[in-house]
Design a protein around this nucleic acid. Structure first.
Lengths: 213, 213
DNA sequence: AAAAGATTAAAACAATCGTTTGATTGAATC
DNA sequence: GATTCAATCAAACGATTGTTTTAATCTTTT
Protein backbone atom coordinates (compact mmCIF):
# COMPACT_ATOMS: atom_id res chain seq x y z
CA UNK A 1 0.00 0.00 0.00
CA UNK A 2 2.93 2.32 0.64
CA UNK A 3 3.79 2.56 -3.04
CA UNK A 4 5.20 6.05 -2.97
CA UNK A 5 6.17 5.53 -6.59
CA UNK A 6 5.17 8.67 -8.46
CA UNK A 7 3.72 6.76 -11.39
CA UNK A 8 1.43 4.70 -9.18
CA UNK A 9 0.36 7.71 -7.18
CA UNK A 10 -0.72 9.39 -10.42
CA UNK A 11 -2.45 6.24 -11.67
CA UNK A 12 -4.47 5.92 -8.46
CA UNK A 13 -5.47 9.56 -8.34
CA UNK A 14 -6.35 9.57 -12.03
CA UNK A 15 -8.43 6.42 -11.69
CA UNK A 16 -10.42 7.99 -8.88
CA UNK A 17 -10.95 11.38 -10.53
CA UNK A 18 -11.62 10.00 -14.01
CA UNK A 19 -14.31 7.81 -12.46
CA UNK A 20 -15.82 10.60 -10.38
CA UNK A 21 -15.68 13.48 -12.86
CA UNK A 22 -15.06 11.88 -16.23
CA UNK A 23 -12.00 12.16 -18.45
CA UNK A 24 -12.73 15.72 -19.51
CA UNK A 25 -13.92 16.80 -16.08
CA UNK A 26 -10.78 15.73 -14.24
CA UNK A 27 -7.93 18.14 -14.94
CA UNK A 28 -4.23 17.41 -14.81
CA UNK A 29 -3.81 19.81 -11.93
CA UNK A 30 -6.54 18.18 -9.85
CA UNK A 31 -5.02 14.75 -10.47
CA UNK A 32 -1.47 15.71 -9.66
CA UNK A 33 -2.57 17.66 -6.60
CA UNK A 34 -4.43 14.62 -5.24
CA UNK A 35 -1.40 12.49 -6.02
CA UNK A 36 0.86 14.98 -4.27
CA UNK A 37 3.19 15.35 -7.23
CA UNK A 38 4.11 18.11 -9.63
CA UNK A 39 1.77 18.94 -12.48
CA UNK A 40 4.41 18.22 -15.11
CA UNK A 41 4.85 14.66 -13.86
CA UNK A 42 1.94 13.37 -15.97
CA UNK A 43 3.49 14.43 -19.25
CA UNK A 44 6.92 13.32 -18.08
CA UNK A 45 5.88 9.81 -17.08
CA UNK A 46 3.00 9.10 -19.45
CA UNK A 47 3.45 11.50 -22.37
CA UNK A 48 -0.07 12.91 -22.40
CA UNK A 49 -3.34 12.89 -20.54
CA UNK A 50 -4.77 10.41 -23.01
CA UNK A 51 -1.88 8.02 -22.55
CA UNK A 52 -2.41 8.34 -18.81
CA UNK A 53 -5.99 7.21 -19.30
CA UNK A 54 -4.80 4.26 -21.33
CA UNK A 55 -2.38 3.30 -18.56
CA UNK A 56 -5.21 3.53 -16.01
CA UNK A 57 -7.40 1.30 -18.15
CA UNK A 58 -4.73 -1.22 -19.06
CA UNK A 59 -3.61 -1.81 -15.49
CA UNK A 60 -6.98 -3.25 -14.48
CA UNK A 61 -8.62 -4.49 -17.66
CA UNK A 62 -5.92 -6.97 -18.63
CA UNK A 63 -6.24 -9.22 -15.54
CA UNK A 64 -10.03 -8.82 -15.54
CA UNK A 65 -10.32 -9.97 -19.15
CA UNK A 66 -7.89 -12.81 -18.50
CA UNK A 67 -10.24 -13.97 -15.76
CA UNK A 68 -13.20 -13.58 -18.10
CA UNK A 69 -11.55 -15.63 -20.82
CA UNK A 70 -10.48 -18.34 -18.36
CA UNK A 71 -14.06 -18.67 -17.08
CA UNK A 72 -15.35 -18.80 -20.63
CA UNK A 73 -12.89 -21.45 -21.74
CA UNK A 74 -13.72 -23.56 -18.69
CA UNK A 75 -17.40 -23.50 -19.63
CA UNK A 76 -16.67 -24.36 -23.26
CA UNK A 77 -14.29 -27.18 -22.29
CA UNK A 78 -16.72 -28.73 -19.85
CA UNK A 79 -19.51 -28.56 -22.44
CA UNK A 80 -17.30 -30.21 -25.05
CA UNK A 81 -16.31 -32.91 -22.57
CA UNK A 82 -19.98 -33.68 -21.97
CA UNK A 83 -20.77 -33.44 -25.66
CA UNK A 84 -23.43 -30.77 -25.10
CA UNK A 85 -23.73 -27.17 -26.19
CA UNK A 86 -22.51 -24.72 -23.54
CA UNK A 87 -25.23 -23.92 -20.97
CA UNK A 88 -26.42 -20.32 -20.83
CA UNK A 89 -26.14 -19.56 -17.13
CA UNK A 90 -22.37 -20.15 -16.77
CA UNK A 91 -21.79 -18.26 -20.02
CA UNK A 92 -23.60 -15.17 -18.76
CA UNK A 93 -21.84 -15.55 -15.43
CA UNK A 94 -18.44 -15.68 -17.10
CA UNK A 95 -19.22 -12.39 -18.82
CA UNK A 96 -20.77 -10.60 -15.87
CA UNK A 97 -19.08 -12.03 -12.79
CA UNK A 98 -15.62 -10.45 -13.12
CA UNK A 99 -17.18 -7.00 -13.31
CA UNK A 100 -19.54 -7.58 -10.42
CA UNK A 101 -16.76 -9.06 -8.30
CA UNK A 102 -15.00 -5.72 -8.61
CA UNK A 103 -18.14 -3.99 -7.45
CA UNK A 104 -18.42 -6.26 -4.42
CA UNK A 105 -14.84 -5.59 -3.43
CA UNK A 106 -15.42 -1.89 -3.69
CA UNK A 107 -12.48 0.48 -3.59
CA UNK A 108 -10.25 1.06 -6.61
CA UNK A 109 -11.70 -1.70 -8.75
CA UNK A 110 -15.22 -0.38 -8.29
CA UNK A 111 -14.04 3.02 -9.44
CA UNK A 112 -12.40 1.46 -12.47
CA UNK A 113 -15.60 -0.24 -13.54
CA UNK A 114 -17.50 3.02 -13.29
CA UNK A 115 -14.87 4.62 -15.50
CA UNK A 116 -14.96 1.74 -17.95
CA UNK A 117 -18.75 1.80 -18.17
CA UNK A 118 -18.61 5.46 -19.06
CA UNK A 119 -15.96 5.02 -21.73
CA UNK A 120 -18.17 2.63 -23.69
CA UNK A 121 -20.55 5.47 -24.50
CA UNK A 122 -18.09 8.34 -24.59
CA UNK A 123 -18.65 10.71 -27.52
CA UNK A 124 -14.93 10.95 -28.24
CA UNK A 125 -13.97 8.17 -30.68
CA UNK A 126 -10.37 8.25 -29.48
CA UNK A 127 -11.47 7.27 -25.96
CA UNK A 128 -13.67 4.52 -27.34
CA UNK A 129 -10.70 3.28 -29.35
CA UNK A 130 -8.56 2.95 -26.21
CA UNK A 131 -11.24 0.91 -24.50
CA UNK A 132 -11.91 -1.40 -27.42
CA UNK A 133 -8.24 -1.99 -28.02
CA UNK A 134 -8.43 -4.14 -24.89
CA UNK A 135 -12.02 -5.39 -25.18
CA UNK A 136 -12.58 -6.50 -28.77
CA UNK A 137 -10.99 -9.91 -28.48
CA UNK A 138 -12.99 -10.83 -25.38
CA UNK A 139 -16.23 -9.59 -26.92
CA UNK A 140 -15.68 -11.61 -30.07
CA UNK A 141 -14.98 -14.70 -28.00
CA UNK A 142 -18.29 -14.28 -26.20
CA UNK A 143 -20.17 -13.66 -29.44
CA UNK A 144 -18.88 -16.97 -30.77
CA UNK A 145 -19.65 -18.75 -27.49
CA UNK A 146 -23.22 -17.47 -27.36
CA UNK A 147 -23.68 -18.47 -30.99
CA UNK A 148 -22.68 -21.99 -29.97
CA UNK A 149 -25.20 -21.93 -27.14
CA UNK A 150 -27.97 -20.68 -29.43
CA UNK A 151 -27.29 -22.56 -32.68
CA UNK A 152 -30.80 -21.98 -34.04
CA UNK A 153 -30.52 -18.19 -33.73
CA UNK A 154 -28.93 -16.16 -36.54
CA UNK A 155 -25.77 -14.44 -35.42
CA UNK A 156 -27.12 -10.94 -35.82
CA UNK A 157 -29.83 -11.71 -33.26
CA UNK A 158 -27.29 -13.23 -30.93
CA UNK A 159 -25.27 -10.04 -31.15
CA UNK A 160 -28.38 -8.00 -30.44
CA UNK A 161 -29.11 -9.99 -27.30
CA UNK A 162 -25.49 -9.71 -26.23
CA UNK A 163 -25.88 -5.94 -26.47
CA UNK A 164 -28.88 -6.09 -24.17
CA UNK A 165 -26.77 -8.06 -21.68
CA UNK A 166 -23.92 -5.59 -21.86
CA UNK A 167 -26.28 -2.63 -21.51
CA UNK A 168 -27.97 -4.04 -18.42
CA UNK A 169 -24.59 -4.87 -16.91
CA UNK A 170 -23.09 -1.43 -17.50
CA UNK A 171 -26.15 0.32 -16.14
CA UNK A 172 -26.00 -1.88 -13.05
CA UNK A 173 -22.45 -0.71 -12.50
CA UNK A 174 -23.65 2.87 -12.57
CA UNK A 175 -26.48 2.10 -10.16
CA UNK A 176 -24.30 0.23 -7.69
CA UNK A 177 -21.88 3.10 -7.75
CA UNK A 178 -24.45 4.60 -5.45
CA UNK A 179 -25.15 7.89 -7.08
CA UNK A 180 -27.72 6.85 -9.63
CA UNK A 181 -31.03 8.63 -9.18
CA UNK A 182 -33.45 5.98 -10.41
CA UNK A 183 -32.52 4.15 -7.25
CA UNK A 184 -32.17 7.28 -5.16
CA UNK A 185 -35.65 8.54 -5.87
CA UNK A 186 -37.05 5.36 -4.35
CA UNK A 187 -36.95 6.61 -0.78
CA UNK A 188 -37.87 3.29 0.74
CA UNK A 189 -34.92 1.62 -0.93
CA UNK A 190 -32.50 -0.05 1.48
CA UNK A 191 -29.58 2.16 2.37
CA UNK A 192 -26.99 -0.49 1.64
CA UNK A 193 -27.61 -2.58 -1.46
CA UNK A 194 -26.74 -6.24 -1.23
CA UNK A 195 -24.42 -6.40 -4.22
CA UNK A 196 -24.44 -10.20 -4.37
CA UNK A 197 -28.23 -10.24 -4.45
CA UNK A 198 -28.18 -7.72 -7.31
CA UNK A 199 -25.70 -9.90 -9.16
CA UNK A 200 -27.80 -13.04 -8.91
CA UNK A 201 -30.91 -11.11 -9.86
CA UNK A 202 -29.11 -9.64 -12.88
CA UNK A 203 -27.76 -13.00 -14.05
CA UNK A 204 -31.16 -14.69 -13.78
CA UNK A 205 -32.77 -11.78 -15.63
CA UNK A 206 -30.23 -11.99 -18.44
CA UNK A 207 -30.30 -15.78 -18.73
CA UNK A 208 -34.08 -15.72 -19.13
CA UNK A 209 -33.74 -13.08 -21.81
CA UNK A 210 -30.98 -14.92 -23.67
CA UNK A 211 -32.67 -18.32 -23.60
CA UNK A 212 -35.89 -17.28 -25.34
CA UNK A 213 -36.78 -18.79 -28.66
CA UNK B 1 -38.48 23.82 -41.72
CA UNK B 2 -37.65 27.42 -42.53
CA UNK B 3 -37.64 28.46 -38.88
CA UNK B 4 -35.10 31.21 -39.16
CA UNK B 5 -35.85 32.05 -35.57
CA UNK B 6 -32.53 32.51 -33.81
CA UNK B 7 -33.60 30.56 -30.74
CA UNK B 8 -34.67 27.53 -32.76
CA UNK B 9 -31.56 27.63 -34.91
CA UNK B 10 -29.46 27.47 -31.73
CA UNK B 11 -31.61 24.70 -30.25
CA UNK B 12 -31.25 22.56 -33.37
CA UNK B 13 -27.51 23.07 -33.66
CA UNK B 14 -27.01 22.44 -29.94
CA UNK B 15 -29.08 19.28 -30.05
CA UNK B 16 -26.98 17.93 -32.87
CA UNK B 17 -23.60 18.86 -31.41
CA UNK B 18 -24.45 17.87 -27.83
CA UNK B 19 -25.47 14.45 -29.15
CA UNK B 20 -22.40 14.05 -31.33
CA UNK B 21 -19.72 15.45 -29.05
CA UNK B 22 -21.27 15.58 -25.59
CA UNK B 23 -22.15 18.61 -23.51
CA UNK B 24 -18.55 19.39 -22.65
CA UNK B 25 -17.23 18.55 -26.07
CA UNK B 26 -19.52 20.92 -27.95
CA UNK B 27 -18.40 24.51 -27.49
CA UNK B 28 -20.54 27.62 -27.69
CA UNK B 29 -18.62 28.82 -30.71
CA UNK B 30 -19.13 25.55 -32.60
CA UNK B 31 -22.85 25.62 -31.85
CA UNK B 32 -23.41 29.24 -32.83
CA UNK B 33 -21.31 28.83 -35.94
CA UNK B 34 -23.40 25.85 -37.07
CA UNK B 35 -26.54 27.84 -36.27
CA UNK B 36 -25.22 30.79 -38.23
CA UNK B 37 -25.67 33.23 -35.37
CA UNK B 38 -23.43 35.32 -33.17
CA UNK B 39 -21.62 33.61 -30.29
CA UNK B 40 -23.22 35.89 -27.71
CA UNK B 41 -26.70 34.83 -28.76
CA UNK B 42 -26.65 31.77 -26.50
CA UNK B 43 -26.16 33.79 -23.34
CA UNK B 44 -28.59 36.43 -24.54
CA UNK B 45 -31.44 34.03 -25.31
CA UNK B 46 -30.83 31.23 -22.83
CA UNK B 47 -28.70 32.73 -20.07
CA UNK B 48 -25.99 30.08 -20.02
CA UNK B 49 -24.79 26.95 -21.76
CA UNK B 50 -26.41 24.81 -19.08
CA UNK B 51 -29.77 26.50 -19.51
CA UNK B 52 -29.43 25.94 -23.25
CA UNK B 53 -29.02 22.23 -22.56
CA UNK B 54 -32.12 22.26 -20.41
CA UNK B 55 -34.08 23.96 -23.20
CA UNK B 56 -32.84 21.33 -25.66
CA UNK B 57 -33.93 18.55 -23.31
CA UNK B 58 -37.27 20.04 -22.36
CA UNK B 59 -38.41 20.65 -25.93
CA UNK B 60 -38.41 16.93 -26.72
CA UNK B 61 -38.77 15.10 -23.44
CA UNK B 62 -42.08 16.64 -22.40
CA UNK B 63 -44.13 15.28 -25.34
CA UNK B 64 -42.24 11.97 -25.24
CA UNK B 65 -43.04 11.43 -21.58
CA UNK B 66 -46.62 12.47 -22.14
CA UNK B 67 -46.86 9.73 -24.73
CA UNK B 68 -45.22 7.29 -22.33
CA UNK B 69 -47.68 8.14 -19.55
CA UNK B 70 -50.67 7.90 -21.90
CA UNK B 71 -49.58 4.43 -23.03
CA UNK B 72 -49.05 3.38 -19.42
CA UNK B 73 -52.44 4.63 -18.27
CA UNK B 74 -54.14 2.88 -21.15
CA UNK B 75 -52.56 -0.42 -20.09
CA UNK B 76 -53.53 0.10 -16.44
CA UNK B 77 -57.08 1.11 -17.33
CA UNK B 78 -57.62 -1.87 -19.60
CA UNK B 79 -56.26 -4.23 -16.92
CA UNK B 80 -58.54 -2.71 -14.30
CA UNK B 81 -61.51 -3.02 -16.65
CA UNK B 82 -60.78 -6.71 -17.10
CA UNK B 83 -60.08 -7.16 -13.40
CA UNK B 84 -56.59 -8.55 -14.03
CA UNK B 85 -53.15 -7.34 -13.15
CA UNK B 86 -51.49 -5.38 -15.95
CA UNK B 87 -49.76 -7.70 -18.46
CA UNK B 88 -46.01 -7.37 -18.77
CA UNK B 89 -45.57 -7.02 -22.52
CA UNK B 90 -47.61 -3.81 -22.97
CA UNK B 91 -46.00 -2.35 -19.85
CA UNK B 92 -42.50 -2.85 -21.21
CA UNK B 93 -43.67 -1.58 -24.57
CA UNK B 94 -45.09 1.58 -23.02
CA UNK B 95 -41.71 2.26 -21.46
CA UNK B 96 -39.56 1.41 -24.46
CA UNK B 97 -41.67 2.22 -27.50
CA UNK B 98 -41.59 6.06 -27.37
CA UNK B 99 -37.81 5.97 -27.33
CA UNK B 100 -37.52 3.43 -30.11
CA UNK B 101 -40.07 5.27 -32.22
CA UNK B 102 -37.68 8.21 -32.15
CA UNK B 103 -34.88 5.97 -33.31
CA UNK B 104 -36.96 4.64 -36.20
CA UNK B 105 -37.83 8.14 -37.34
CA UNK B 106 -34.19 9.11 -37.26
CA UNK B 107 -33.23 12.75 -37.60
CA UNK B 108 -33.48 15.21 -34.71
CA UNK B 109 -35.34 12.89 -32.37
CA UNK B 110 -32.72 10.16 -32.77
CA UNK B 111 -30.06 12.67 -31.87
CA UNK B 112 -32.03 13.71 -28.83
CA UNK B 113 -32.25 10.15 -27.53
CA UNK B 114 -28.53 9.69 -27.92
CA UNK B 115 -28.03 12.85 -25.91
CA UNK B 116 -30.52 11.75 -23.28
CA UNK B 117 -28.95 8.32 -22.93
CA UNK B 118 -25.62 9.96 -22.28
CA UNK B 119 -26.97 12.34 -19.66
CA UNK B 120 -28.20 9.47 -17.50
CA UNK B 121 -24.63 8.47 -16.79
CA UNK B 122 -22.98 11.87 -16.94
CA UNK B 123 -20.49 12.44 -14.13
CA UNK B 124 -21.72 15.99 -13.54
CA UNK B 125 -24.55 15.91 -10.97
CA UNK B 126 -25.95 19.18 -12.31
CA UNK B 127 -26.54 17.61 -15.71
CA UNK B 128 -28.13 14.57 -14.11
CA UNK B 129 -30.38 16.91 -12.16
CA UNK B 130 -31.65 18.56 -15.33
CA UNK B 131 -32.52 15.21 -16.82
CA UNK B 132 -34.26 13.82 -13.76
CA UNK B 133 -36.23 16.99 -13.25
CA UNK B 134 -38.24 15.80 -16.25
CA UNK B 135 -37.94 12.03 -15.75
CA UNK B 136 -38.60 11.25 -12.10
CA UNK B 137 -42.37 11.32 -12.25
CA UNK B 138 -42.52 8.96 -15.22
CA UNK B 139 -40.02 6.59 -13.64
CA UNK B 140 -41.97 6.44 -10.39
CA UNK B 141 -45.17 5.73 -12.30
CA UNK B 142 -43.53 2.78 -14.02
CA UNK B 143 -42.09 1.48 -10.75
CA UNK B 144 -45.56 1.42 -9.29
CA UNK B 145 -47.02 -0.17 -12.42
CA UNK B 146 -44.42 -2.93 -12.50
CA UNK B 147 -45.02 -3.56 -8.81
CA UNK B 148 -48.69 -4.10 -9.67
CA UNK B 149 -47.73 -6.52 -12.41
CA UNK B 150 -45.39 -8.45 -10.11
CA UNK B 151 -47.26 -8.40 -6.78
CA UNK B 152 -45.27 -11.31 -5.33
CA UNK B 153 -41.93 -9.57 -5.87
CA UNK B 154 -40.60 -7.16 -3.22
CA UNK B 155 -40.34 -3.63 -4.56
CA UNK B 156 -36.58 -3.47 -4.29
CA UNK B 157 -36.28 -6.41 -6.70
CA UNK B 158 -38.79 -4.81 -9.05
CA UNK B 159 -36.67 -1.67 -9.07
CA UNK B 160 -33.59 -3.75 -9.78
CA UNK B 161 -35.24 -5.38 -12.77
CA UNK B 162 -36.47 -2.01 -13.99
CA UNK B 163 -32.86 -0.84 -13.94
CA UNK B 164 -31.88 -3.79 -16.12
CA UNK B 165 -34.61 -2.79 -18.56
CA UNK B 166 -33.49 0.82 -18.63
CA UNK B 167 -29.85 -0.18 -19.07
CA UNK B 168 -30.58 -2.46 -22.01
CA UNK B 169 -32.76 0.21 -23.59
CA UNK B 170 -30.19 2.99 -23.26
CA UNK B 171 -27.41 0.81 -24.59
CA UNK B 172 -29.60 -0.12 -27.54
CA UNK B 173 -29.97 3.59 -28.30
CA UNK B 174 -26.22 3.92 -28.40
CA UNK B 175 -25.87 0.88 -30.63
CA UNK B 176 -28.55 1.98 -33.08
CA UNK B 177 -26.88 5.35 -33.30
CA UNK B 178 -24.56 3.41 -35.54
CA UNK B 179 -21.20 4.21 -34.09
CA UNK B 180 -21.04 1.60 -31.40
CA UNK B 181 -18.11 -0.73 -31.85
CA UNK B 182 -19.50 -3.96 -30.39
CA UNK B 183 -21.68 -4.01 -33.45
CA UNK B 184 -19.06 -2.57 -35.74
CA UNK B 185 -16.46 -5.23 -34.97
CA UNK B 186 -18.85 -7.85 -36.27
CA UNK B 187 -17.87 -7.45 -39.89
CA UNK B 188 -20.58 -9.72 -41.20
CA UNK B 189 -23.24 -7.59 -39.54
CA UNK B 190 -25.83 -6.15 -41.94
CA UNK B 191 -25.02 -2.63 -43.05
CA UNK B 192 -28.45 -1.29 -42.26
CA UNK B 193 -30.00 -2.49 -39.02
CA UNK B 194 -33.73 -3.15 -39.08
CA UNK B 195 -34.69 -0.93 -36.18
CA UNK B 196 -38.13 -2.46 -35.83
CA UNK B 197 -36.66 -5.94 -35.59
CA UNK B 198 -34.27 -4.75 -32.89
CA UNK B 199 -37.18 -3.24 -31.00
CA UNK B 200 -39.22 -6.42 -31.01
CA UNK B 201 -36.19 -8.45 -30.04
CA UNK B 202 -35.45 -6.05 -27.19
CA UNK B 203 -39.02 -6.09 -25.88
CA UNK B 204 -39.22 -9.88 -25.94
CA UNK B 205 -35.85 -10.10 -24.20
CA UNK B 206 -36.95 -7.71 -21.46
CA UNK B 207 -40.39 -9.25 -20.97
CA UNK B 208 -38.81 -12.67 -20.42
CA UNK B 209 -36.43 -11.15 -17.91
CA UNK B 210 -39.12 -9.26 -16.06
CA UNK B 211 -41.57 -12.15 -15.87
CA UNK B 212 -39.25 -14.58 -14.09
CA UNK B 213 -40.18 -15.83 -10.65
C1' DA C 1 -40.64 61.26 -37.73
C1' DA C 2 -38.89 60.45 -33.08
C1' DA C 3 -38.14 57.69 -29.12
C1' DA C 4 -37.84 53.21 -26.90
C1' DG C 5 -36.94 48.66 -26.71
C1' DA C 6 -35.27 44.27 -28.47
C1' DT C 7 -31.84 41.93 -31.01
C1' DT C 8 -27.32 41.29 -33.19
C1' DA C 9 -22.34 42.19 -33.76
C1' DA C 10 -17.28 42.34 -32.80
C1' DA C 11 -14.16 42.35 -29.21
C1' DA C 12 -12.31 41.56 -24.91
C1' DC C 13 -13.00 39.31 -20.40
C1' DA C 14 -10.97 36.24 -16.74
C1' DA C 15 -10.32 31.51 -16.06
C1' DT C 16 -8.78 27.05 -17.18
C1' DC C 17 -6.99 23.65 -20.23
C1' DG C 18 -2.90 20.31 -21.57
C1' DT C 19 1.66 20.98 -22.41
C1' DT C 20 6.49 22.75 -22.54
C1' DT C 21 10.43 24.97 -20.77
C1' DG C 22 14.61 25.50 -18.18
C1' DA C 23 16.61 25.20 -13.82
C1' DT C 24 17.53 22.21 -9.85
C1' DT C 25 17.93 18.12 -7.33
C1' DG C 26 19.45 13.41 -6.27
C1' DA C 27 21.59 9.20 -7.19
C1' DA C 28 24.34 6.22 -10.02
C1' DT C 29 28.47 5.69 -13.13
C1' DC C 30 33.03 6.30 -14.67
C1' DG D 1 35.50 13.72 -7.22
C1' DA D 2 33.63 14.73 -11.71
C1' DT D 3 30.13 13.46 -14.82
C1' DT D 4 25.89 11.70 -16.45
C1' DC D 5 21.18 10.69 -16.38
C1' DA D 6 16.63 10.48 -14.64
C1' DA D 7 13.33 12.88 -11.80
C1' DT D 8 11.08 16.88 -9.78
C1' DC D 9 10.09 21.63 -9.51
C1' DA D 10 8.04 26.42 -10.40
C1' DA D 11 6.79 29.09 -14.11
C1' DA D 12 5.04 30.25 -18.35
C1' DC D 13 3.32 28.75 -22.85
C1' DG D 14 -0.52 29.22 -26.44
C1' DA D 15 -5.01 27.82 -27.05
C1' DT D 16 -9.67 27.47 -25.78
C1' DT D 17 -13.40 27.85 -22.48
C1' DG D 18 -18.07 30.32 -21.14
C1' DT D 19 -19.32 34.78 -20.43
C1' DT D 20 -19.58 39.96 -20.46
C1' DT D 21 -19.22 44.36 -22.53
C1' DT D 22 -20.21 48.05 -25.61
C1' DA D 23 -21.74 49.68 -29.70
C1' DA D 24 -24.53 49.12 -33.79
C1' DT D 25 -28.69 47.65 -35.97
C1' DC D 26 -33.43 46.53 -36.42
C1' DT D 27 -38.36 46.63 -34.85
C1' DT D 28 -41.98 48.55 -32.52
C1' DT D 29 -44.41 52.18 -30.27
C1' DT D 30 -45.73 56.82 -29.54
Amino acid sequence: MEESNTKDRILNAAERLFAEQGFRGAGIRAITQMAGVNAAAVNYHFGSKEQLLEAVIERRIVPINEERMALLEAVLLEAERQGIKPPMEPLVRALVAPTIRGLVQGGPELRFHVLAARMVTDPDPQLQAIFHKYMDRAILAFVSAFCGALPDLPMERVVMRLQFVIGAMLHTVHCLHGSHPVIRIIREFPEKLDVEAVTESLIRFLVRGMEGV
